[in-house]
Write a protein that binds this DNA or RNA. Structure first.
Length: 594
RNA sequence: GGCCCCAUAGCUUAACUGAAUAGAGCAUUUGACUACGGAUCAAAAGGUUACAGGUUUGAAUCCUGUUGGGGUCACCA
């Protein structure tokens, strides 16, 4: 049993025996004893005063004495103000560590039987992925892994936004100015090629608007009447009517984009269990509109548009169906939610979407609830903050976006330069080196993004390269490589990490490590409940840092006492194992050497 | 303007449901490789947790207000 749970159990018994009172678990707060005090774990006694009717010091002393008398595990205690600091016997830590070392599934929580769908990425097919998408993708991926570690069954899904006026804009510009350019003919990655035509469209559009304004039209009118915009709208109508020429072009250009995305996803190490396409789901939800009308919770205007009035809930009136009967964004979201909960019998559905859509998801949940769906409460919007540049928001129209592929390449080069400079890889093949540089650059990038609390807006300065020292992914990767190096040497000497001798007395630093190791499953649970991989990232850093401090002045292979040597080799292997598991949740690989 | 989110050291950030002297990293200054791997370690310096009240034995954390920043309130997605 973990020490904190053990203390709570015994403290309850102590309170019961000493004061004849039963208090809920919440009254027993246990924390790791701060460095400056003596002890392993600390019980906060303030909440217990109401039943002890004694001073904090007297209460702490009484409980401490009771625990020392009535357990073998608690060896000594001291009381500082309202804090009861408890010290465990050395044998307790050895025993705890032994049970962890022999548990191969340590950190994987038992199956819950729940199925959770996580929707993330959800790109538009008119431009390449940028840094904002990277945050989304990494967050979605790591949350999925985190929920799996929590024992849930997870379905990772992507909803590709492959239809609409914005797609037609790229198509139109390509028809007008492309001269039949293809990814093969130009050597450009498909998503970048199509993105270039989206930019080209906007250039044409702006020029036409300016000309109309110069000709005496108001800017507002001009923006509605620019010929290329009209043409794009025409094209969308033709697409919706199944016009073969338009649909064929749409298919061709989308396939270029999908090829490009596939490469970026592969580079990021991301995959999905299922991909949905809006072109196939955008008509969903219309039946729900009728249902809402029948229930009397929606209302139809004179022009036939349908609305849901949410003003009583402090929100606005929301459009659900246009006057011409076509649906809007939220309509299909209502429909897809119903479809997914029905098809997969989901216990929870998480949407990884930027915080600019907070309002949208508030409305979505509320309308589903009004429609009588009990599962509406099981929708969770994992809202994350924007990635901003020093000069402010990224704007694709102004060309100030940080392109995902560019960034990955830049990171790769940095990893390569740093590694070659240190020159420890001479005997590696080119292919092995390439794999390593990829692992390190991704580790740096992923950790950089994931360690930050998702809901915070984060700043990225392209001029300052992402660090490889300090609280970073490579720091943890380096720690792992060092441990593996030692374990390889131990193995050569026939020392394998499998058993812990009874007589291995643990040093204070080793006890600190065992405490941290023991916390891992709790961290997985805590991070899972909070939908926050950042908690795992910070835990892995703490463990790696603690290990580096320990390692610096504690010999392992040069230890002469065979029991201690055996224990330390096992300790290292357990730390390496946990680092691998924790970083795997973040989608970060750890190298054997670097 | 209504509603929502955010504000911690020069910068990037941590602190589970309130708990002891608010932890790290980067940058700065200094020290440690004939050593199991220096992408490391040790140390110095750096804080009125935006501001003002309130609740509490105890507040970065909860409540109210103020300031600053962001988002949103489309027959866009």
């Amino acid at each position: 049993m973990s020490p904190d749970k053990f203390i709570i159990e015994k403290a309850k018994a102590a309170v019961s025996a000493l004061y004849g009172a039963e208090l809920p678990d919440a009254s027993f707060q246990v924390q790791v004893t701060r460095k400056e005090f003596e002890g392993d774990y600390t019980l906060v006694v303030f909440p217990l005063l109401k039943v002890s009717h004694l001073s904090p010091e007297a209460t702490g002393k009484a409980i401490g004495e009771w625990m020392k008398e009535n357990t073998d595990e608690i060896e000594s205690f001291n009381v500082v103000k309202g804090f009861l600091n408890l010290s465990f016997a050395n044998a307790y830590w050895a025993g705890l560590f032994t049970s962890i070392a022999s548990d191969a599934g340590f950190g994987q929580l038992p199956p819950t039987g729940k199925t959770i769908m996580v929707e993330f990425s959800s790109p538009n097919t008119n431009k390449p992925l940028h840094l904002g998408h990277i945050r989304n993708n990494l967050l979605g991926w790591s949350v999925s892994r985190l929920l799996e570690a929590n024992g849930h069954k997870v379905l990772k899904v992507n909803l590709v936004n492959d239809r609409g006026i914005h797609i037609c804009k790229s198509m139109l510009a390509w028809l007008k100015t492309g001269n039949g350019e293809t990814p093969e003919s130009s050597g450009k990655k498909g998503d970048h090629l199509v993105g270039d035509y989206y930019v080209a469209f906007n250039d044409m559009y702006r020029k036409e608007v300016d000309e109309l304004v110069a000709g005496g039209m108001s800017r507002e009118e001009a923006e509605k009447n620019a010929p290329v915009l009209k043409e794009a709208q025409q094209m969308l109508l033709r697409w919706e009517n199944g016009d073969k020429e338009v649909v064929d072009l749409w298919k061709k250009m989308n396939s270029w984009v999908y090829d490009g995305f596939a490469k970026t996803y592969a580079d990021l190490g991301i995959s999905f269990d299922r991909t949905y396409y809006e072109s196939q789901t955008y008509l969903l939800g219309k039946a729900l509109v009728q249902k809402g009308l029948d229930m009397g919770i929606f209302e139809k205007e004179a022009d036939n548009s349908v609305w849901c009035d949410l003003t009583a809930d402090g929100l606005d009136r929301k459009l659900l169906l246009r006057g011409d009967g076509t649906s809007v964004y939220i309509t299909q979201d209502l429909g897809t939610a119903e479809q997914r909960f029905g098809e997969y019998n989901l216990d929870e559905h998480i949407y990884v979407v930027g915080n600019e859509q907070n309002y949208h998801f508030q409305v979505l949940k509320l309308i589903l609830k009004k429609l009588g769906f009990a599962w509406a409460d099981n929708i969770y919007h994992l809202s994350y903050g924007m990635v901003e540049l020093p000069e402010g928001k990224m704007k694709s129209r102004e060309g100030t976006v940080v392109d995902a592929d560019d960034l990955l390449e830049k990171m790769y080069n940095t990893a390569r330069e740093t590694s070659l400079e240190l020159g420890k890889l001479e005997d590696m093949t080119e292919a092995e080196q390439d794999k390593l540089f990829r692992m390190l650059s991704l580790g740096a990038l992923k950790y950089f993004i994931i360690k930050v609390d998702p809901k915070k807006t984060m700043l990225f300065d392209p001029k300052e390269s992402i660090d490889f020292n300090g609280n970073t992914g490579p720091f943890i990767q380096y720690t792992h490589a060092r441990i593996k190096s030692i374990l390889r040497k131990a193995e050569d000497r026939g020392i394998l990490p499998d058993s812990v001798p009874e007589d291995a007395g643990l040093s204070p630093k080793e006890i600190r490590l065992v405490k941290l190791i023991d916390m891992y499953p709790d961290k997985v649970a805590e991070a899972g409940a909070a939908h926050s991989p950042a908690i795992i990232a910070n835990y892995a850093y703490d463990l790696a840092k603690e290990f580096n401090q320990y390692y610096h002045d504690t010999p392992v292979l040069r230890e002469e006492n065979p029991s201690l040597l055996q224990f330390r080799v096992t300790l290292l292997s357990v730390i390496a194992r946990i680092l691998v598991k924790a970083m795997d949740i973040l989608g970060i690989g750890l190298p054997e050497r670097m």
